[in-house]
Nucleic acid binder design. Structure first.
Length: 412
RNA sequence: GCGGCUGUAGCUCAGCUGGUAGUAGCGCCAGAUUGUGGUUCUGGAUGUCAUGGGUUCAAAUCCCAUCAGCCGCCCCA
């Protein structure tokens, strides 16, 4: 038997309705913030991600689906979309259009990780990028936007974590200092930290081992080593968030995995997600354009929501039901039902028709389907010119003329 | 990529220390007279016991491998 491959899955009804709802909410919020959709290819030249995401990130190092095309070009299934959006921005010279360019995307990403709850090899992201300004106002607005999407999707109990990770000017010095400090104390820490102290010192800050916490608390904090520009930027972002009444927690130790992040980084966690508790992540990436070969600078900030995880946090769904289930009895009625169905559908009413001749069976199916109404039409009804509209919840039956039907269904 | 747990009907599961699967619950199908569902009653269908090997007279039950899911690590959405 052929099955969906590891880490991929089918999203079936009624769950698919939740996905659609979440996407509709996101699109609506994007519209009110003047964001517009961009659709980029699902695969790109490998070097775009290698240079954009960072050569020594896990994503590029071991998680990409990469293959050689027939002409020898190395291609890769996109593991994230920011690099692609930036590529498109540069390629189409969007910097020539006035104002901050605000783009959003919804679609699948691919990473070859070990699947787990909330972690898939093909997963979906809803993301946005605001390119063309390094103003902290944009940072705060982007965060406000994503918080709005979560709220409007019905997610409660989420937690916004905020940090500044410095920029190309001050971060290298901080990392060097951290590495130096760690060289002296790493021996007291867990095995993972001893390894990370050398390979990826920032990751040490993220360690969850209880015994290591005192050591970590004593390590230098990035916030004490931000240069003036970065500190001022961070202060301004916070002021704007405070002004909007958006609650957040500053996490100097929050580390984000993509190399291009600088200054503002943020993350939102949710309790219902288990180990993969992050529902979205984002940050500023002012150096990304240059990293992928742009001559003109293109400062930007963006986020991406893990749609799979968002859907999990939304919880229960109420599956939309069919409005009317037509139960025609007899050959003439069946033909008659076709035109009637078309008429109701044209009025925006969802219609299902019975393929069974027996009324009993038709009502059974209507009931199981969760139909709001059943419409009984047999020879009697057709002759009289009125149909019997049965309210499935109450059992009440109302005779109605064809002209009254659509209005009655819509108003009840 | 590493470690742990799990894998029996569409779903949730039972099946003790190996003897060759359950009247289980839900769901599904049919019927309880001819144009009326949801409750009730009666009857019925459905499993290569994840897959492939091995041990044994005999395996869903033990062993190995593979695959998948979940949990933890790593990492991130």
């Amino acid at each position: 038997m052929i099955r969906a491959i590891k880490g991929t899955r089918d999203i079936l009804p009624p769950a698919s309705a939740v996905w659609n709802r979440v996407e509709a909410v996101a699109r609506e919020v994007f519209r009110t913030f003047n964001y517009h959709e961009i659709r980029t290819p699902i695969f790109e030249e490998t070097s775009l991600f290698a240079r954009g995401v960072g050569e020594d990130t896990d994503i590029v190092g071991k998680e990409m689906y990469t293959w050689e095309d027939r002409d020898g070009t190395s291609l890769t299934l996109r593991p994230e979309a920011t690099a692609s959006v930036m590529r498109a921005y540069i390629e189409h010279r969007l910097d020539q259009i006035p104002g901050v360019k605000k783009l959003y995307y919804i679609g699948p990403m691919f990473r070859r990780e070990r699947p787990q709850k909330g972690r898939y090899r093909q997963f979906f992201q809803i993301g946005a990028e605001a390119i063309g300004s390094d103003s902290p106002i944009i940072d705060a607005e982007v965060i406000e936007l994503v918080v709005e999407i979560l709220k409007r999707s019905g997610v409660t109990d989420f937690h916004l974590l905020l940090n500044s990770v410095g920029d190309a000017n001050c971060r290298p010095a901080y990392i060097a200092l951290l590495k130096e400090t760690l060289a002296g104390v790493a021996s007291q820490m867990c095995d993972d930290c001893q390894r990370r102290a050398v390979t990826n010192p920032l990751r040490v800050l993220d360690c969850k081992v209880e015994a290591d916490q005192p050591v970590i608390d004593a390590l230098p904090s990035i916030h004490d080593h931000l240069d003036d520009a970065c500190r001022a930027h961070f202060t301004a972002v916070r002021a704007h968030l405070d002004n909007r009444g958006i609650p957040y927690t500053v996490r100097p130790r929050m580390v984000r995995g993509l190399d291009y992040y600088m200054r503002t980084t943020f993350e939102i966690t949710h309790g219902a997600l288990g180990s993969q508790n992050s529902v979205l992540g984002g940050g500023r990436y002012d150096g990304l354009a240059e990293a992928i070969g742009s001559k003109v600078p293109a400062p930007g900030i963006g986020f991406s929501i893990g749609e799979d995880r968002l859907v999990m946090s939304v919880g229960e769904n109420t599956e939309p039901v069919v409005d009317v289930f037509l139960a025609p009895l007899g050959d003439a009625a069946e033909l008659h039902a076709g035109g009637l169905a078309a008429e109701l559908r044209a009025a925006g009413i969802s219609v299902e028709r019975s393929v069974d001749r027996k009324l009993k069976r038709a009502l059974e199916v209507a009931n199981k389907m969760g139909a709001r109404y059943a419409l009984i039409l047999g020879d009697n009804e057709i002759a009289a010119g009125t149909y019997l509209l049965k309210n499935m919840a109450s059992g009440e039956q109302t005779p109605l003329a064809r002209a009254q039907l659509a209005a009655h269904i819509q108003n009840n």
